[in-house]
């Protein structure tokens, strides 16, 4: 007979989960609590106590035109990067599923970019896309000044979007390919018998059955591009928010205001707003988008 160890005293259980609780507390609740506190007080940059100021930090942030341009930049970045990463991954997954059913090597091959740290990816992008010395420098020899993300805001945004998408395509690809391969083969065969060609089968059968996975990836990608460490790392290495704040995403602005501008209170207020924004975004997605999703 199987023997089960039963601990009568609860204390051992608490002891066992304590390390995890500590980690969660130290790295999540404590900073969040501190940010909340700072957001409602005025923090002296050189120390010397806080002063309760109510919503003043928030109104200062919300009345700042630079903040709103950062919101706009973040939105452009998040939607463009997500759209690109998902669309590309979908195309790759559909092709791999058709041509190489069961092939395992592509999976690990495509997921590698995701395993590389964002700053490392950004450094590579910086070398490749450097206007004078990078691999793309030849376009400037044809047409001087055609490509220069350090003075052209739209180009800088394109660059960070590309970089983020490149890193996330692999992640999305893996999920989409797994979802595609879990669609019973008989379903695509049935639609082939019903007269549908390959493209029609993709549109009518595969894509609808992918929607749960697609939706999951949409939430993850949008959230990551809005607040993720990758967005921060990419902007920090590639553009530092420039030129002229064109790529000053919300995550980056919090950092630069807080640690470079030493405006702790303003940065704290911004992070609270960002947190709320992400919560609202996720809620909206689950509430309205999920309804249109087919779960088997």
């Amino acid at each position: 007979m199987e023997k089960r160890a039963v601990f009568r005293a609860g204390s051992l259980a608490y002891l066992l989960i304590l390390p995890q609780l500590l980690l969660v507390f130290v790295f999540f609740y404590w900073p969040t609590g501190a940010a909340l506190y700072w957001a409602f007080t005025l923090e002296m940059p050189w120390g010397g106590g806080n002063q309760w100021v109510g919503l003043e930090n928030f109104s200062a942030v919300l009345n700042d035109a630079k903040y709103w341009s950062s919101v706009a930049a973040s939105c452009v970045f998040a939607f463009a990067a997500t759209a690109l990463a998902l669309a590309q991954a979908l195309v790759l997954a559909l092709f791999v599923d058709r041509q190489l059913r069961g092939s395992k090597s592509f999976r690990s091959f495509y997921v590698w970019p995701y395993a590389v740290a964002a700053p490392a990816v950004s450094l590579a992008f910086r070398f490749i896309f450097a206007p004078e010395t990078g691999l793309v420098a030849f376009v400037n020899q044809w047409w001087p000044g055609l490509w220069n993300p350090s003075i052209n805001g739209a180009q800088a945004m394109t660059l960070v979007v590309l970089c983020f998408a490149w890193k996330w395509i692999g992640y999305n690809f893996i999920f989409l390919l797994a979802a595609l391969q879990s669609i019973p083969r008989a379903l695509t065969e049935a639609s082939a018998m019903d007269g549908a060609g390959p493209l029609r089968r993709m549109l009518d059968i595969q894509l609808p059955l992918l929607t749960p996975t697609f939706f999951f990836l949409l939430v993850i990608n949008l959230t990551e591009s809005f607040v993720g460490a990758d967005s921060f790392g990419i902007v920090d290495i590639l553009t530092e928010g420039g030129p002229a704040n064109a790529t000053n995403l919300l995550v980056y602005k919090i950092y630069s205001d807080g640690f470079k501008g030493l405006d702790y209170s303003g940065a704290a207020a911004q992070s609270i707003i960002l947190m709320l924004l992400v919560m609202v975004l996720t809620f909206i997605q689950f509430r309205w988008v999920e309804r249109r999703v087919h779960y088997k």
């Binding site: 008989a186 065969e189 049935a190 019903d194 007269g195 549908a196 609808p208 059955l209 087919h294």
Partner: peptide
Amino acid sequence: RERGCAMVFQNYALYPHMSVAGNIGYALRV
């Protein structure tokens, strides 16, 4: 699709995201 055959599969292979009408009418829609 060029052979003019219809097939009934062992596990039915119905399209889970379509209604009964959608399933039956799919070939006509195509």
